[in-house]
Design a protein around this nucleic acid. Sequence first.
DNA 1: AGATGCATGTAACGGGTTACATGATTAC
DNA 2: GTAATCATGTAACCCGTTACATGCATCT
Lengths: 199, 199
Amino acid sequence: MSLRHALLATLDAGAMTGYELAKTFDQSANRVWHATHPQIYTELRKLERENLVVAQEEPRGTQGKATKRAYTVTEAGREELCRWVATVEEPTLPRDVAHLKATYFEYAPPDAAREQFAAHRAYHAEQLRRWEWHVEQLRARGTDLMQRRLAKAPKERHAAIVAYKVHVYEGMAERARAEVAWAERGLALVDELERDGFM
Amino acid sequence: MSLRHALLATLDAGAMTGYELAKTFDQSANRVWHATHPQIYTELRKLERENLVVAQEEPRGTQGKATKRAYTVTEAGREELCRWVATVEEPTLPRDVAHLKATYFEYAPPDAAREQFAAHRAYHAEQLRRWEWHVEQLRARGTDLMQRRLAKAPKERHAAIVAYKVHVYEGMAERARAEVAWAERGLALVDELERDGFM
DNA sequence: AGATGCATGTAACGGGTTACATGATTAC
DNA sequence: GTAATCATGTAACCCGTTACATGCATCT
């Protein structure tokens, strides 16, 4: 149940609608925790029922039929967020398709193996680019979310707020680099096995 | 739906019961893909209904009331396995509690942050030990599963069978090392922030 | 007038976890 | 005889995905 806390933390920087949260989640900041929009809307309603957030309903469009709802964290919500952040959690259990599949590449022709290592490399190279870009943005305190967050916090804490996020995103970048290197060693391995007649 | 393929691959090395598969899954080999025992038993029944495996039912114990079922892959199952291995899949979407939480360590007292980085380090150090041990076992072709797998495959393919698995497990070890390093940099960061009065 | 994109949802389904149930074997 | 462990399952629940529905806005 981490989605709710990711939502609480994001909302703590300032009120947002479900749509804005969904955008924030999948394009920029929280690529650490994936969530789809139906999930976000549903979870927000749930958080509202539990009084961890409150919604401000406003008309959307000119006809006044459609509405949008901007959510704000309540005091209880903030407490729940702090409680969660300070709690040590069980590590996520491993479930990694790419590595699982690579375990059994013996069952596939060399070209299929190569194709998959190449796809792996491409995906993580792209991720790496994103993480690196994001680290720069954070350091420059240039993202919307960060500015809103900093505006609400006392100045002496700004360094910590930025530093933890930078640390996380640098960790993700490091990971992506490792995946790229792993895929490249994989490609070399396929070549080697084929050259030596083992495939 | 990777569990079924992990099961098919494991069974392809030789018949096993659900219990043996569960053990294989969580203690030694397939720590790349976590699965609990109810899930394994259920999936095996499903694979059986789809004719991807067949079960050999045998009495268990002396009273002859309880039974056990040893599963074997069918030709269709092997084809499905090969098809899956050769297919490029969407990468698993990121969902990482530890990194998500670390993003918000600003909300926690420094000691709570330290405790979590320490737990992270301990967990991945232990994982690293496991992966390294496993790589050694594989290279020595010393695991049960590997020996059964090799016994069924033509000799000229042995090198590839071992090499792919070693590559995967070395990748996992590399990852674990990166997580340990990340946690250590995290600990240093908390110290630094506290020393400079930012917490 | 129709297509595309913004914005907010609901419903059905599937995979995975936790809790529970049951029987056999081994060690004390 | 009782506790622990081996072994096989079922049931309820929760989280997340996919597909569908709806309304407004903008561009052509």
